[in-house]
């Protein structure tokens, strides 16, 4: 037992663990004005949105828009339906599309790689930081929207999507579950932003192109010619919560959505990882 200790200790001292790299990435992210503003925005903006919509005529062309004055549970669903069109892909990309490419922008790849850490460690630390941050933003956004809606509009029964009225006690878990279905596609968009950020080495492209791709997928998906292939789009999992709110709930789209999002996540991260591993870092 004691003989093994000296053999391990120098190696551990030479190469810091991924946890150390992760801590540094989190510290770097926390020091950015952009990420702090995002966290504050995720809490404050929904409050403003709910208060403004409370004085407007109901926006009937978005699902649940017509009920925003009659049930506080309808408001977070309306906000979710609106947000997944481009707000959630944008929120997912703001940090993830920048976290790799900003090292190119500042020419700091060589600086971080000389700290005796491997590219694999850097890759996972940055990926986990982006994923954790995006989950935090989504949770804050959902919590702020749901709380404000219930306080401002009230906890009336929620009209379902099959003509039934969902009692207030059952409505809250359903609203939270609906927001939870956004986790999978948000992580998919996070991975897409990471891939584009690694490949293009440009933070602007890393942030903007997932949003544009999301809008294109939304447009292609709304045409209806795709039929079952529509399920392979990364935007379709954002719509699966509709099935939770019918009289006979159907969960198959939610499951498919999670599998499709996981597929996008794995493929995007695998390509990004290989690209970063093989990349020739000489400049900077």
């Amino acid at each position: 037992m004691t003989a093994a200790v000296p053999a391990v200790a120098p190696a551990a001292r030479r190469r810091p663990g991924t946890a150390t790299v992760l801590r540094w990435e989190a510290t770097k992210l926390a020091a950015q004005v952009r990420s702090r503003a995002l966290l504050i925005g995720a809490v404050v903006v929904p409050i403003a949105v709910v208060l403004i919509f409370n004085t407007q005529l109901p926006p009937k062309d978005t699902i649940y828009g017509r009920h925003i004055h009659t049930s506080g549970y309808a408001v977070p669903l309306f906000v979710l339906a609106f947000a997944h069109q481009w707000v959630l892909p944008l929120l997912a990309a703001l940090v993830a599309g920048d976290i790799f490419a900003n090292e190119d922008q500042h020419g700091t790849w060589k600086t971080i790689l000389t700290r005796s850490v491997s590219r694999t460690q850097i890759f996972w630390a940055k990926t986990l930081t982006a994923v954790g941050f995006n989950l935090l933003v989504l949770v804050l956004l959902a919590a702020s929207t749901i709380t404000t809606s219930l306080l401002v509009v009230g906890s009336q029964p929620l009209p379902g999507l099959s003509g039934q009225l969902i009692p207030a006690g059952h409505a809250l878990p359903l609203v939270i579950a609906s927001w939870a279905t956004a986790v999978a596609p948000v992580l998919g968009f996070t991975a897409l932003a990471i891939l584009l950020s690694v490949v293009t080495r440009n933070p602007t492209i890393g942030v903007a192109s997932p949003v544009v791709l999301g809008m294109i997928m939304q447009l292609v998906g709304s045409l209806g010619g795709l039929n079952k292939a529509r399920r392979l789009l990364l935007t379709t999992p954002f719509e699966t919560w509709h099935g939770l709110l019918t009289a006979h709930p159907f969960h198959a789209p939610v499951t498919t959505g999670v599998i499709v999002s996981a597929g996008w996540l794995v493929v995007c991260l695998a390509i990004a990882y290989l690209y970063l591993r093989r990349r020739d870092i000489t400049g900077g």
């Binding site: 017509r66 009659t70 999507l161 099959s162 509709h242 099935g243 019918t246 789209p253």
Partner: peptide, 17 residues
């Protein structure tokens, strides 16, 4: 005065069954 629920409504159906 309350909204008439059958005047216009949103609904969803299962795309698998």
């Amino acid at each position: 005065d309350v909204p008439n629920p059958v005047f216009e409504w949103d609904g969803a159906f299962d795309p698998d069954h």
